[in-house]
Structures are given as structure tokens and as C-alpha cells.
């Protein structure tokens, strides 16, 4: 009896809804940003599906010259798409991560929320949870779709797998990179407490990370070496490999630079080769089969960074006000 009346009164005062408490607040406050992200994800997803279908039509029309044709069939749409996907983590960091907490400190609403009956930590955890959740969802969906397109048709999509356009936009790397940069944006926002300043600093930081990342990328797995005779072709199984370095070598494994013994005449060249005992081509490479391991290693590093930044922000909030 008494429970019914309590239910009725609370039901009238605050209608029962699906989302409650801090989750309601975070969703209401960031409604516009989250809807934008949702819309963007849907549009880009459709765009990927559309481009994939177009490519299949094109290949069907040409009688599927998939293997060995070597002619890239990608157009402006493909490069636009890869550029957009590549920019997505930076955009999320600057427009979602940086203002996430900085806007509330700047406008005083952090004080408003944390003088209700919720602690700073609970509020931050809710905000970060939704922000990271949305980032992860959007990027995971886009990455999965792009991988689904790229993997079977990679031989006709011109770009090498270790280039940013592919490596950073497929598999776990896109979500991990987005999470790391967004977490960095949040941290910068917490430290600087100003929206515009943190957006600018986050942008600069994100560009620096992307630059560093392009240098780290090819060190994510140990390279392999292959040796084959000078006068033969590159073994076919290596056609999709990423060539790191190329030498010429002697039978007992001594290496010379690729340009060694490049002489004006063939005669002089052969004399040089014979004199040095060079008989083989030696190639240091990363195999396409290493891609998944490299992507997961890289994602692991980025996720560890994300966890460290998040822990810093959350633990700091217990001691220091926002």
C-alpha cells in the first residue's frame, strides 16, 4: 500500500525513464555531439558500402582481373574516404575530448554538478564512459566496414598495407588511435581548463602523435630477410610484402648496398660482382601476414596510453577540484 503511493508520487515528480542519474545528465549535455557522431558514423558506413558495391560492379564488368592486373581502380572517393577516416581520431580528440571537461570548468558547470550529491569522480567516470564508448563504437564500426571492403580487394586498391591509409584505418588501430587521442584531449582540457586553448593544444598534440606514429608503425614487428639469386624474380609469395631495405650479398652472407657495382657497362658491372662475390638479392621486409600482429601490438600500446591518461584524470580529481 505504502509502496504504491510512494511509486505514484515519485512517478509523477520524476517520470520513470530509461536513462537515469548521471547517465541522463551526460547524454543530455552532450546530446548534440553524440547525435552528430552517430549521424557521421551512419553516413560514412553507407558510403563505404556504396563504394564497395561500385568496385564490385566495376570488377564484374571487367571480368574480374583481380590477381596480377596491378592496375589500381581506386578513385577520388577512395582517397577522400581514407583521408576522412584518418582525420576522424583527430577530429574526435579536438571536438569531443578537449571540451569534455574543459567546457564545464570554464563555464562553472563542473561546480554546479559536483555540488549536487555526486562526487567529482563519479561524474568524470560517467562522462569518460560515454565519451570513450561513443568513440569506440563509431570507430569500431567504421574500421570493421572498411576492413570488410579492403581485405578481399586489397590487390586492386592501390595503397600498401603499411601506409597510414590502410594500417591506421583497419582492424583495431582506428578505435585505439581515436581513444588515445581523445583521452589526451580530455587530459589537456582538464589541465588547461579553457576550451579554445585545449582544442588548439590537442590539435597540435594529435598531429605530433600522428607523425610519431608514422615512424613507429614499421617497428611494431621484427623484420624478416629473404635472399634470392641476382638473376631471378622476387618470389611471388612476397608480392604483398612491405620492403624495408634492399641489399645485394655474397654467398656467405656479406651485404653490400643496393647501389654497389652499378657500373657504366655491363662488363664492368659483372667484373665488379665477380670480384666481390655478389650472387644474391637480399630484401628486408615485413610480410602481410604480420599485419594483424602489428596492428594489435600498436593498438595495445595506444590503449595502454589511454588507460594511463584516464587513470591520471580520474585519480587527480579525487585530490584536486576540476
Amino acid at each position: 500500500m505504502s509502496t504504491t503511493s510512494t511509486d505514484a508520487s515519485t512517478g509523477r515528480a520524476t517520470p520513470r525513464r530509461m536513462v537515469r542519474g548521471l547517465n541522463w545528465l551526460v547524454l543530455r549535455q552532450h546530446r548534440a555531439a553524440l547525435l552528430c557522431l552517430l549521424g557521421l558514423t551512419l553516413l560514412v558506413s553507407l558510403w563505404i558500402v556504396y563504394q564497395r558495391a561500385q568496385l564490385i560492379d566495376l570488377l564484374d564488368a571487367a571480368g574480374r582481373p583481380e590477381e596480377g592486373a596491378g592496375q589500381p581502380v581506386t578513385g577520388r572517393q577512395y582517397s577522400l574516404l581514407t583521408m576522412l577516416l584518418g582525420a576522424l581520431p583527430v577530429v574526435l580528440a579536438v571536438f569531443l575530448g578537449a571540451p569534455l571537461v574543459a567546457a564545464d570548468t570554464e563555464q562553472g558547470t563542473a561546480q554546479l554538478v559536483t555540488t549536487q550529491s555526486v562526487t567529482r569522480r563519479r561524474w568524470l567516470v560517467a562522462k569518460l564512459g560515454w565519451c570513450f564508448g561513443a568513440t569506440l563504437l563509431a570507430c569500431a564500426v567504421l574500421s570493421a566496414l572498411f576492413t570488410w571492403w579492403w581485405r578481399p580487394y586489397r590487390s586492386v586498391l592501390s595503397i600498401s598495407w603499411l601506409d597510414a591509409e590502410v594500417f591506421d584505418n583497419t582492424g583495431p588501430v582506428l578505435p585505439a588511435l581515436a581513444l588515445f587521442l581523445t583521452a589526451a584531449g580530455v587530459t589537456i582540457g582538464v589541465l588547461l581548463r579553457r576550451v579554445l586553448a585545449s582544442m588548439v593544444v590537442t590539435f597540435v598534440f594529435a598531429v605530433a602523435v600522428e607523425t610519431a606514429w608514422s615512424m613507429i608503425r614499421q617497428n611494431l614487428a621484427p623484420t624478416r630477410m629473404v635472399t634470392y639469386p641476382l638473376d631471378s624474380e622476387l618470389p611471388a609469395r612476397l608480392s604483398e610484402s612491405y620492403e624495408v631495405e634492399r641489399w645485394v650479398g655474397t654467398a656467405d652472407g656479406k651485404l653490400y648496398g643496393w647501389g654497389s657495382c652499378v657500373e657504366a657497362t655491363e662488363k664492368a658491372q659483372e667484373a665488379c660482382l665477380a670480384q666481390k662475390g655478389i650472387v644474391d638479392n637480399v630484401i628486408e621486409y615485413l610480410g602481410q601476414d604480420q599485419m594483424a600482429a602489428m596492428q594489435w601490438t600498436g593498438a595495445g600500446i595506444l590503449l595502454a596510453g589511454t588507460a594511463a591518461l584516464t587513470a591520471f584524470v580520474v585519480l587527480r580529481s579525487a585530490r584536486r577540484p576540476l
Partner: peptide, 23 residues
């Protein structure tokens, strides 16, 4: 507080709902 911060985009009803959700 001195400058009485509130979420500017919230309606009055939503502001009160925030109070209900957080207290």
C-alpha cells in the same frame, strides 16, 4: 556560487530534472 552557473542549453524543466537525477 557567485556566478550561479547553470547549463545554458537546458530548459528550466531539464535543470530541475538534473536536480532530481543527482540528489
Amino acid at each position: 556560487g557567485q556566478d550561479k552557473p547553470l547549463f545554458k542549453r537546458f530548459t528550466v524543466a531539464e535543470t530541475l530534472r538534473m536536480g532530481a537525477e543527482l540528489n
